[in-house]
C-alpha cells in the first residue's frame, strides 16, 4: 500500500496479519491485515463498536490477539516494547492530589533516559497549570498533560486513542498542532478518532473499520478521489450507511 513508483518504499514499523479478537461470543475484531510505515500518521476510523480501541490495544501490546499477529519490524513484539511506545488512553485517571509536575516526575522515573522535564513542560505548554491538582485541569490541559506523559521516554511510536473527544474546537486545534509537531519529529503516530476532519488533516494513511472488519484502506486524499466525493465525512457516511439511514429514521 505504500508502494509508490519513483519513491523509496518506507520501512514498515508495524504489520498486522489476520488479526482477530473475541470476548466470549462477541467478535470485536474479525481479521485485519495492514502495515504501518515508520514515521507515518496512521488513523483507525469507525463508528462506536467498530473495533478501533480493541485493535489499538493489540497494537499497543496491552491485549493479546485471539488469532493473528502484530509484528514490530517484522518480528514478534519485543519484551521491552513498552519502552518503545507511548500511549495516550481514551480515559485515564491519574493519582488524586498529584500535580502535573508530580506526574511528570513519576512517569519520567520509570525510564532510563527520559526527556528533560523542562523540555516537556515547554513543548506541551504546561507552565500555567504545572502545580495545580490534576483533577482540576480543563479538558484541553488534561489532554496536553496525558500526551506529555505518553512522551516522557521519547518513544518511537505514539498511540492516541480519540485524543480530542470532548474538547472544545480551540483545544482540539491546539492538540492538532501538537500532534503535527510530533509527526514533524519523525515519530510514528497511530490514532483513533470520530472526527473526519481530524483524520483528513493529520493522517497519511487510514483504515476505516466496521464490525471489526476493514471497509476501506488508503491515504485520505486518494480515498476521497477514488470515491468521487468532496470530503472524508461524505465518504464515511456513504460507507457506513447504517449511520446515515439511522439518522434519516430519526428525522422521519
Amino acid at each position: 500500500m505504500f508502494l509508490n513508483i519513483g519513491r523509496v518504499m518506507p520501512e514498515v514499523i508495524l504489520s498486522v496479519s489476520g488479526l482477530e479478537k473475541s470476548y466470549d461470543e462477541v467478535v470485536a475484531v474479525a481479521g485485519l491485515d495492514f502495515e504501518i510505515a515508520k514515521g507515518a500518521c496512521f488513523g483507525l476510523l469507525g463508528p462506536n463498536g467498530a473495533g478501533k480501541s480493541t485493535t489499538l490495544a493489540m497494537l499497543e501490546g496491552m491485549e493479546d490477539p485471539t488469532r493473528g499477529t502484530v509484528q514490530y519490524y517484522g518480528c514478534p513484539l519485543p519484551s521491552d516494547y513498552q519502552t518503545r511506545v507511548g500511549i495516550q488512553f481514551q480515559a485515564t485517571a491519574l493519582q488524586d492530589f498529584l500535580t502535573p509536575f508530580d506526574n511528570l516526575k513519576l512517569f519520567s522515573s520509570f525510564y532510563d533516559d527520559p526527556i528533560p522535564m523542562d523540555q516537556l513542560i515547554d513543548q506541551f505548554r504546561l507552565q500555567e497549570f504545572l502545580y495545580r491538582d490534576s483533577r482540576r485541569l480543563s479538558g484541553g490541559q488534561r489532554q496536553r498533560l496525558l500526551l506529555a506523559l505518553a512522551l516522557v521516554h521519547n518513544p518511537e511510536i505514539v498511540f492516541l486513542d480519540e485524543p480530542t473527544t470532548g474538547l472544545d474546537p480551540r483545544s482540539r486545534r491546539d492538540l492538532w498542532d501538537v500532534v503535527s509537531a510530533l509527526k514533524a519529529d519523525g515519530r510514528t503516530l497511530i490514532l483513533t478518532t470520530h472526527y473526519m476532519e481530524e483524520a483528513e488533516i493529520l493522517c497519511d494513511e487510514l483504515v476505516i473499520l466496521s464490525h471489526g472488519k476493514t471497509l476501506l484502506q488508503g491515504p485520505p486524499k486518494q480515498l476521497i478521489a477514488d470515491a468521487g466525493v468532496s470530503d472524508l465525512d461524505t465518504l464515511f457516511l456513504s460507507l457506513t450507511g447504517e449511520t446515515l439511514v439511522k439518522t434519516q429514521e430519526v428525522i422521519e
Binding site: 499497543e60 496491552m62 513498552q82 519502552t83 488512553f89 485515564t92 520509570f110 525510564y111 506523559l149
Partner: peptide, 16 residues
C-alpha cells in the same frame, strides 16, 4: 479505586 479509574491500566503501559 486505581483500577476502576483506569490508572492501573495507564501504569501497565510503562515498564513498571
Amino acid at each position: 479505586r486505581y483500577r476502576q479509574s483506569g490508572y492501573l491500566r495507564r501504569l501497565r503501559a510503562t515498564p513498571l
